[in-house]
């Protein structure tokens, strides 16, 4: 017995090395089983195409599995960015979650904590190789009466000076509204803390002036949701000026501030608003690196 123990102890380092090597090899051998084939993705696309409804969206889990974009219907929004499980996706009453849980280190805890609350499966999961496709009812969805992104052509935009001088109007040039003092507004895709967003892309005016955007005929709404975020890497600079936003609407006045160094959106919601004009004013002491992505939406109840 002692001899056996002695031999085992002597051989233990070699056995440990072999064991770890075999574990490593085993991991490598089984890893390809987690990779969907093109046929798997095509089957997913066919399944979604056959069952889709207006307002549907596909959410990829884990967030980086974007090879699916190659196969999914091109007009179907696909949500896939770091932090996307916390996205309310409020314009989408149904979410197709395309998950690959066979991948190593899939962030399940994050999914349970941030995605699942207020989301209910509304169909049985379908399997396509390692992929699982599950439709969820989005309990966080709201009816969106109007978005200023869609109403961009109706916006009246001008620059106001601090001393109370007359506002200087901006003019439309192609798809962009060009303003005095280097300000501009357009509808464009940009990134706010890794989230691709189609938004009002605003370059604020210089000299501490105020950019004013007015929608003369805002609809009645349960709430107005204002979101503003600095785009891309400009957001993290800690020494830049904050951006102040002031929304005047029939629901009253809503103040928002995008602080220096803040990455991601800041958002605020008004109480119920009657139909009437909305005026959003934004100003910053220094527009350097303050490229802003803005969304303003009139929200109703659940769809």
């Amino acid at each position: 017995m002692n001899e056996t123990v002695h031999r085992l102890r002597t051989a233990a380092p070699a056995l440990a090395m072999v064991l770890v090597a075999l574990l490593g090899l085993g991991f490598q051998l089984q890893l390809p089983r987690a990779f969907p084939s093109d046929a798997d993705y095509r089957a997913v696309a066919a399944a979604v195409r056959g069952a889709r409804a207006p307002g549907d969206v596909v959410l990829l889990h884990p967030w980086w599995t974007e090879r699916a974009r190659l196969f999914l219907p091109p007009d179907l929004p696909v949500v896939a960015y770091l932090g996307h499980t916390a996205d309310d996706l409020l314009e989408h009453p149904r979410i197709w979650v395309l998950a690959n849980e066979r991948l190593p280190r899939t962030p399940e805890a994050d999914f349970r904590r941030n995605f699942l609350p207020d989301r209910t499966p509304v169909g049985t999961p379908q399997r396509f190789g390692p992929l699982t496709l599950t439709p969820y009812r989005n309990g966080r969805a709201r009816r969106v009466g109007l978005s200023v992104v869609e109403a961009f052509d109706r916006l009246r935009i001008s620059v106001e000076s601090p001393a109370g001088a007359a506002a200087q109007p901006c003019h439309r040039s192609g798809t962009r509204v060009q303003c005095p003092f280097d300000a501009s507004v357009e509808v464009a895709w940009h990134e706010v803390l890794y989230q691709p967003v189609r938004c009002l892309y605003v370059l604020p005016p210089s000299g501490g002036r105020t950019l004013s955007l007015t929608l003369p005929d805002g609809p009645a709404a349960d709430a107005l949701l204002l979101e503003a975020g600095i785009t891309w890497e400009h957001a993290w600079f800690p020494d830049r000026a904050p951006v102040e936003l002031r929304l005047e609407s029939p629901a009253g006045v809503l103040h928002l501030r995008v602080p220096a160094g803040h990455e991601g959106f800041v958002s605020g919601e008004t109480p119920a608003a009657a139909a009437g004009p909305w005026t959003l004013r934004l100003t910053t002491a220094n527009p350097h690196d303050r490229q802003l992505c803005l969304r303003l939406r009139a929200l109703g109840g659940p769809p």
């Binding site: 980086w64 991948l103 190593p104 280190r105």
Partner: peptide, 9 residues
């Protein structure tokens, strides 16, 4: 790390 996909997650 879980290989390349694990590192991505």
């Amino acid at each position: 790390a879980g290989g390349i996909p694990g590192a991505a997650s």
